[in-house]
């Protein structure tokens, strides 16, 4: 089993506030890793260190190493654009651009230099099929994406992310703004996507973590309490805190 990300001694500070403490973790290729833990424990912060989205926030300092395919992404000459192309992200709130469905999907490929209309058309069809939306929207590709339902918007965002052919998809509570039907559609999708992509997903929903993930990592107060196979975490966690959280005794 290949390791996609190797994280060692990762510390992150917002100004003087330490949000992540000595994180060590491996994220494996073609597996779904779930990050769970109470609100404010640093899950989103951690997720955003993997594609360097925290660089946007002023006053953030990061120590330690995050290796992606063996290379430290915080190294001096690392190409962030290439990183973000390989490590895509789906956000908590569906955030399609105020453009057409078609334009949303081809945005990434166009940025990365693809101009050929046929190629772009094929990307749109392929990615919409991957998110099981092609039949629903194939007749209205030129309609505004903001006219779609919340669940459709989120799947469109996943398609937009797939369009740049990433290797990893980071998802920050991708279903928390959706109803149960849309949620189960996306969960079903995750399993299929895991065949081709490495997925890291933040969720507050224990059942969801249990249902979809191969590995689960429990965060508490900026630290990783434990990471293990999902069955183990849910049936026989090593740490008492993990058990308490999973059984709903706090958090």
């Amino acid at each position: 089993m290949e390791t996609k990300f190797e994280i060692e001694k990762l510390n992150l500070y917002y100004g003087s506030f330490q949000a992540l403490q000595d994180i060590d973790m491996n994220i494996y290729s073609n597996r779904i890793t779930a990050l769970i833990g109470p609100s404010g424990c640093g899950k989103s912060t951690f997720l955003r260190t993997l594609n360097r989205m925290n660089d946007l926030i002023r006053g953030v300092t990061i120590e330690g190493t995050v290796k992606f395919d063996g290379e430290d992404i915080y190294g001096n000459f690392y190409d962030i654009i290439k990183l973000r192309k390989k490590v895509g992200m789906v956000f908590q709130k569906p955030n399609p651009f105020p453009k057409t469905i078609y334009e949303n999907i081809v945005y990434g490929p166009k940025i990365h230099g693809e101009k050929n209309k046929t190629v772009l058309d094929n990307i749109v069809e392929r990615t919409l099929k991957e998110v099981a939306m092609w039949e629903e929207v194939k007749d209205r590709l030129q309609k505004p994406a903001l006219g779609l339902s919340g669940g459709q918007q989120q799947r469109l965002c996943i398609a937009r992310c797939l369009a740049v052919e990433p290797e990893v998809i980071l998802m920050d509570e991708p279903t928390s703004a959706l109803d149960p039907v849309a949620t189960s559609k996306i969960e079903g999708l995750l399993e299929e996507l895991a065949e081709k992509y490495t997925i890291v997903i933040v969720t507050h929903n224990m059942q969801q973590a249990g249902r979809v993930s191969d590995y689960t990592s429990f965060f508490l107060n900026g630290k990783v309490i434990e990471t293990d196979k999902t069955e183990v975490i849910f049936s026989n966690p090593a740490n008492k805190k993990t058990e308490e959280y999973i059984t709903g005794r706090f958090g």
Partner: peptide
């Protein structure tokens, strides 16, 4: 969110501003 979406797709700052 729009800005983040664009940057997360590998667009640089200028592309994000213009597009």
């Amino acid at each position: 969110e729009f800005k983040e979406a664009s940057l997360a797709l590998g667009a640089n700052k200028m592309e994000t501003i213009v597009r």
